[in-house]
Design a protein around this nucleic acid. Structure first.
Lengths: 239, 239
DNA sequence: GTTTAAATTTTTGTATACAAAAAATCAAAA
DNA sequence: TTTTGATTTTTTGTATACAAAAATTTAAAC
């Protein structure tokens, strides 16, 4: 369990009256982001119902929402599993993120105020701390929160909700494809991004963001290559 | 009831085994797109359950999904109503669509084949027919289908699912803010767009798409102004 | 020992009953 | 007449029972 951040990230037009399925949803969502739930893990309804001390009705609602955001895969009559995006799917998710992040960062530069810049800095500070403490899961989640915070500052609910889905899917991808733990020190780039935002430099910001996503995508290609190699090796293992 | 199009537009990784809530979802979705369900209409669970001859469980699942796509507004303990985006919200939705459509159209130009061009033409033909027959509702829906077809050809499931949500929200907006029925002859611009795609002209295509969205946004400003005028008038009606 | 088929168990899908909240109705007071 | 408060009705939220499907186990045949 990790601490609750002060402000909700969802587009909450209705006050903070969190329904039971919201709570379940957020717990599972966070577990996926922190990679405590590995891709492919079966999410048994009754087990979850016991864990959260609610009925299956509530669990099903939460899973349905997670399914809609592509965080879990809903297989008719066969239950839900944590999504396992293929390299090809991952590539498309990253592409979609390129599109959204570029738009978001430009909107942020147009809208941002000093208070929000402070929030951004705090977010990256927290991310850095998690990584330095060796809590990679929390670090990756906090990294995601940084990008969600950007979308929030961009002040466009549809983009935010899309970003939410993309960020969680990217966390899954990172968890699946990025093996070297030391390589994921995104917070450095995040600080640079904040600087570019502060200076109102759209071109630099967009370039930085693009590099940031390149890192994810490169890992992907590498891993894809490896998998192919291993696959061929296993096929001809008797030679 | 309108004819089913040959191919499903949803990202269907699982075969065509439509569940009951899918059917309910699609019916309500289509009714919203065709503006047979006006913005603000209360969607009573029990009434819908009777109409579709299923239990409330199914209805709630369908409404939950529609709520997630922002097609209906889910008010805790107060039921669902067809969404009624304000002018400010509408502007943000249109902005999000600008972002997505630009990306989609460029992907389409990179990927499209002659068979898909044919599908695009058929879609606009159908749209034109609906408008010429005076069936504005079906026309608007078919116009939406054209844009969903583009996203489908772009071959990026996350963008497609986002587009789906945006297109339906735009239909709501058009229904709310566009009063002059003759003005909505988008199919002309759609034909031009196909031509630009065929020629691989990304710049023209993007420009056309942008104009297309300008039309929606202009209507919005006009109506916003009118509402304000009326509001002021009503406030000072005793003078 | 492996494969196939039947029986059993588990799990998901749907309907429904009941609880909780909101809306509507009605009655009394100003 | 309008307003306020209590009562009733309606509607939503949740749990649960049962049905249907899938997974697992068991048993038999090869």
């Amino acid at each position: 369990m990790t601490k609750k951040s002060s402000k909700s990230v969802t587009a909450d037009q209705y006050p903070l009256k969190k329904t039971q399925d919201d709570v379940v949803y957020e717990h599972i969502f966070e577990a996926v982001l922190e990679q405590r739930l590995a891709p492919g893990t079966k999410l048994n309804e009754e087990s979850l119902a016991e864990i959260f001390a609610v009925s299956r009705t509530i669990i099903r609602r939460a899973l349905s929402r997670l399914g809609h955001e592509q965080v879990v895969e809903l297989r008719p009559n066969r239950g839900a599993i944590v999504a396992t995006p293929s390299a090809a799917q991952a590539r498309k998710i990253v592409l979609a993120r390129r599109v959204i992040e570029k738009a978001v960062i430009e909107l942020v530069i147009d809208n941002v105020n000093s208070e929000q810049l402070q929030l951004l800095r705090q977010s990256v500070d927290s991310e850095k701390q998690h990584f330095e403490r060796g809590d990679r899961g929390a670090g990756i989640r906090q990294s995601g929160e940084f990008h969600l915070l950007l979308a929030k500052i961009a002040d466009n609910p549809p983009l935010l909700s899309f970003q939410r889905s993309l960020v969680s899917q990217c966390s899954l991808i990172i968890g699946q494809y990025e093996n070297s733990p030391q390589s994921h020190c995104s917070y450095d780039e995040h600080y640079q991004l904040i600087a570019a935002i502060e200076q109102g430099d759209k071109v630099s910001a967009a370039t930085l963001m693009s590099h940031h996503l390149d890192h994810i995508e490169n890992k992907l290609s590498l891993d894809e290559q490896q998998s192919t190699d291993n696959y061929l090796k296993s096929v001809f293992s008797d030679i």
